[in-house]
Design a protein around this nucleic acid. Structure first.
Lengths: 195, 195
DNA sequence: CCGAAATGTAACAGAGATGTTCCATAGTTG
DNA sequence: CAACTATGGAACATCTCTGTTACATTTCGG
């Protein structure tokens, strides 16, 4: 949900093409979250489209990956906005952000695993605007005295992502209700960063 | 260090062959930690051995992967033993374990990423004896009242691995001293699991 | 309904990795 | 030295994935 227009439209697309393009990107996110090295055939199958069609929209594999990255970042940006990080106490804001990010599911995995594999370089989530907002909130909390002064911004940013990823893994592998995973994540984060 | 005999010897190996076999497995661990889909040529190059030689020791790729997995688990088992989990307060024991695991470096990454990719199934670290020991220590801490009663064993096990992985990533990406990453990891874990 | 747009099917060439074989060459050991 | 071991190098078939092309078929809007 919340597929706006970043990688969803190539401006020049008809409605039908836009639909197909989004279906492919969405399928790619799901498939690549499970296996970063998945073939285009698998993506095509997941999108219920022929491999040829995938190539019609994304000439090279890297083009699809780029679209996936764009879409993922767009979704994270939207989720960050919805969290209204500048409102209320910093710890509460972090919790709101986690709840929003948690809903992103596969997008979370894609980003955590370093844009799938983009250049095989595993540069993991490079600095995004969202990460900077998150870091700023952490800094605010530290000044307010609600966040531990001995933890760096970068560490806490990393920690948030890690805990979310852990929660998803936990839910998937332990076959536990989503909400339970999320609650454990929130509890652990709150205690870990508390002043 | 601590390469005992799990995947290092095929019993029937001369000293020379055992050396080569271990060099290949060690190189594979390093290379595959960086890229789970790395080719055998890359592994061979890293081991300073020809690709042919790699195939002499490991007929198929999956054989090498299996040897890597065995070696990784052996190292984790040894590290777990060194931590003497049954000694002292549970939180202290967990910290000792983290310090030991942290030293494993690439082995950590290999296991965290699900034995590289073994069957492409991303079954991530399945239950090992070490994990069970870790879980038992957590349970002990909970009974002693030193570990939060509202966090499940499985969650904390997952958390330990994730935090270690995060610490490594943090050190690598933020170009920060190893010890600083480790300390942040320990501090976060201690606070997160505290009763 | 008709035509253009969108998709599917099939085939192909090329790149890269795997796994195998054969032969040559170091190294080691008796 | 001589025999044996371990390794390197090159060549090969095979496989999978990628990217491209040509042609047939469906779909949908005017």
């Amino acid at each position: 949900m919340a597929e706006t227009e970043t990688a969803a439209r190539d401006d020049g697309d008809t409605a039908a093409r836009a639909r197909t393009r989004r279906a492919i990107v969405a399928a790619a996110i799901e498939v690549l979250a499970g296996d970063g090295g998945a073939s285009l055939s698998e993506v095509a199958a997941a999108a219920q489209v022929s491999r040829t069609t995938v190539h019609r929209y994304f000439a090279e594999r890297s083009d699809l990956i780029a679209a996936v990255a764009d879409e993922a970042i767009a979704q994270v940006t939207a989720a960050t906005r919805r969290a209204c990080l500048d409102r209320g106490p910093a710890p509460k804001a972090l919790a709101r952000l986690c709840r929003e990010y948690f809903e992103l599911g596969s997008v979370l995995t894609i980003l955590f695993n370093g844009v799938v594999d983009i250049t095989e370089q595993d540069w993991a989530r490079c600095e995004t605007d969202s990460d900077r907002e998150l870091a700023a909130t952490v800094a605010r909390g530290r000044e307010e005295g609600s966040i531990a002064p001995d933890l760096t911004d970068a560490w806490i940013v990393q920690l948030v992502w890690t805990l979310l990823y852990t929660a998803w893994t936990y839910v998937r592998e332990q076959d536990v209700p989503r909400q339970e995973g999320l609650e454990l994540c929130l509890r652990s984060l709150r205690k870990a960063v508390a002043a």
